[in-house]
């Protein structure tokens, strides 16, 4: 894990990675699948849950689905939808802020705007 992808200790977290075939940012969902929409991410709030997420990430990496999985800090909005809290991960979840017609934001798969 690099400095850029390190999340804070404890708190609500989701698991993200890049998809092997096209590099798109993906998130581990509650049903165990990998989805492009961060709002559908599985969230865990304790050490055991975080460990379970990381184990699922290692499995997906070994299976050739995901590249470089890591935990990200997340929060839930008023509707209960999950969104990343760090600016870097907000941009990953949406797409480049300079090209609103590119990336997930263009397909309606987006969280809140970058800070």
């Amino acid at each position: 894990m690099s400095e850029k992808t390190r999340s804070k200790k404890g708190g609500d977290k989701a698991l993200t990675a890049n998809r092997l075939t096209d590099g798109v940012a993906i998130f581990l969902a509650t049903d165990g699948s990998w989805v492009e929409d961060a709002r559908e991410a599985r969230v865990e709030g304790d050490d055991a849950g975080h460990a379970a997420l990381e184990a699922a990430g290692a499995e997906a990496e070994a299976a050739g689905i995901a590249v470089g999985p890591y935990l990200i800090d997340v929060a839930r909005d008023a509707d209960g939808a999950v969104h990343p809290t760090r600016n870097r991960e907000v941009i990953r979840a949406r797409g480049p802020s300079t090209h609103p017609h590119h990336g997930k934001q263009a397909e309606g798969l987006s969280g809140q705007e970058a800070a």
Binding site: D22, G23, A25, E61, A63, G64, V67, G68, G95, G103
Partner: peptide, 28 residues
């Protein structure tokens, strides 16, 4: 070989970088 699982990312990364292929925030 990477797509078939024969190569791990650790093995493949130096090979793709030698051919100018990076992995960035949204895509390669």
């Amino acid at each position: 070989r990477r797509l078939s699982g024969e190569l791990t990312e650790e093995e493949f990364k130096p090979l793709r970088l030698m051919n100018g292929l990076y992995l960035q925030l949204h895509a390669y």
